[in-house]
Design a protein around this nucleic acid. Structure first.
Lengths: 184, 184
DNA sequence: GCAATTATGGACTGTACAGTCCATTATGGC
DNA sequence: GCCATAATGGACTGTACAGTCCATAATTGC
C-alpha cells in the first residue's frame, strides 16, 4: 500500500492536484477505482497523505544532513544535495509542499494548515541543528537560531521555486552560497 | 480595457488559473463571453497578460524602492512594504509569479518561460540597484552583485510563500532581517 | 433616418472529470 | 467442493467547464 502511496505522490508532485486525474492515479498505483476508493477514500485525502509522506522525507533529510557534523558543513551538504536533485532529477516538479501552498492554500483551508505544519516542522529541524551547533560553540552566543531557521526554511522554498523554472546550477549555487553567508 | 485586465488579474492571482472559471472572469471584468473572447482570445492568453501586468508592477516597485537612497535602506523599505502587504492585504494570495510557477510550470512550457523571464527581470532590478550602490561605495569592492540579486529574488519568493500560509509579521521580519544581513 | 457594421446576451455543444454502483470474479473457512 | 465474504472491472451518473454560435440590440457613417 505504501508503494501505491509513493506512486501517487509522484503523480501529484509532478502535476499538482487538479490536473492529476483519477485515471492517472489508478494507472500509477495499479489500483482500479473501487480499490482506490476503498483504500484512500477520496482524491483529496490521498493528496494530503502524499503531502504528509513528502513532509516526513523532507524533515528526515534535513535532520540527517545536520546530524554528526559541523552545522555549516551540514547545511552545505544539504543544499548541495538539493541543487543536485533540482538540476539532475526529473525536471520542474519543484517542492511538493511549495506547490501545494501555491495551488491550494487559498481555496482549501485544510491543505493550507498542512503546509503551515510542514513548514513549521522543517523550521524546527533547522532550529534543532542550529541550537545544537550553538551549544557546541560553532555559532556566536547571541545568534537568533529561530530567525535563522525561519530564514533557511523560506530560502529553500525560494531556491526550489527558482530552480523549478530555471534549473541552472550556477544560479542555484549563488543562492545557496549567499544563504550560508548569513550564518556568519 | 486595462480595468478589465486588472480585475481579471485579481481573480487569477487569488484563485489560480484552473479554478478561475470563465463565469468568474466575466463577472469580474463586466464582459460577457462574446466580448471576452473578442478582447482576450482565450482564458490562457488573458492569464499570461495578467501575469505580465503583474510583472511590470513588481519590477517597478523594486526599482522605486531602490531609487535615490542607500541600498540597505531601499531594500529594507521594499521588504517592509512587502511584509505589510502580506500581513494586511487580502489574505493568502501569495505572489502571482510564484503561484504560476507552482501551478503551471510543469504542464505549460510557455507559462514556465514567462515566469523565468519575470524572475530574470526582478533579478536585474535588484542587480541594477546593487551595482549602483557598489559604484557609490556602499558595498565592498569584491561583492558579487549578481549572486546577491539572485539570492534576493529567491528569498522574496520564499518569504511570500511562507507568508501565504502563515502571515505572521514576526516570522516574516525574521526572514527579512536575516536576508538583509547577507549584504554585509 | 436608414443601412451596415459592431457589440452583446445567453443558449448550446462537447468534453473531462470525481465519485458510485453492481455484476462478476477471486479468496478463504470448513 | 461449497458457501460466504471480499476484491475487482468498468459502465454509469451528474456536474462543471471552455469555447462557439446566432439572434437581437446598439452604434456608427452618411
Amino acid at each position: 500500500m505504501d508503494a501505491a502511496l509513493e506512486s501517487a505522490t509522484r503523480v501529484f508532485w509532478a502535476k499538482g492536484f487538479e490536473p492529476s486525474s483519477l485515471d492517472d492515479l489508478c494507472a500509477a498505483t495499479g489500483l482500479n477505482r473501487s480499490s482506490f476508493y476503498a483504500a484512500f477514500n477520496s482524491k483529496r485525502d490521498l493528496y494530503l497523505r502524499a503531502l504528509q509522506r513528502y513532509e516526513e522525507g523532507s524533515v528526515a533529510r534535513i535532520a540527517a544532513a545536520l546530524e554528526g557534523r559541523p552545522v555549516r558543513a551540514g547545511l552545505k551538504l544539504f543544499l548541495d544535495g538539493l541543487i543536485d536533485a533540482v538540476v539532475a532529477g526529473p525536471g520542474r516538479r519543484g517542492c511538493f509542499i511549495g506547490n501545494c501552498a501555491a495551488e491550494m492554500a487559498r481555496l482549501d483551508r485544510g491543505a493550507a494548515e498542512r503546509v503551515r505544519r510542514s513548514l513549521a516542522r522543517i523550521e524546527a529541524a533547522f532550529g534543532d541543528g542550529l541550537e545544537k551547533a550553538r551549544a557546541r560553540g560553532e555559532l556566536a552566543r547571541g545568534v537568533d537560531t529561530q530567525a535563522l531557521a525561519r530564514f533557511l526554511t523560506a530560502g529553500i522554498q525560494g531556491l526550489r521555486l527558482v530552480g523549478k523554472v530555471n534549473p541552472d546550477r550556477a544560479a542555484l549555487n549563488d543562492i545557496a552560497r549567499t544563504m550560508l553567508h548569513c550564518l556568519d
